[in-house]
Amino acid sequence: MTEKIRKSAKILVFSTEKISDPAIDMAGLLKLHYPPTVYTITVPCSSGIKSRWILHAYEKGFDGVFIAADGTDCVFGESCTEKTGQLVGRTHVLMKEKSLDPARLKMAAICSVCSESFVKQIKGFNEYLLKTTNP
């Protein structure tokens, strides 16, 4: 029996309403293609994402979770970057406890016009997940 070769990993993106979502929208506007198995859930701020949501995504079969963080552009304040980093750190610990590869959670600051950066990050993440997870 031959195993079906998967072209793209299943990735959940947490994007933010004011900053990274416009960049992801602009990627579509510019027809910058990325795998169609990338799904976005929009939240107000990347520092408000709960670890349990991320772990829930792995439990339900997502290969990776990508946090399109506000970075220094966050409208809620400069502490966003540090707090998003902290939640990623806490989640990595929980992932290790569950024997999940921490690299399956990726975070990058995506500014409101960083469409190309978003697509590049997603493509790189997709390649990593295809190599390391068992689709």
Binding site: I24, D25, M26, A27, K31, L32, H33, Y34, P36
Partner: peptide, 11 residues
């Protein structure tokens, strides 16, 4: 549209 039909017009 922006996050689907346009982003994946190749598929």
């Amino acid at each position: 549209r922006e996050q689907d039909s346009w982003a994946h017009s190749d598929d």
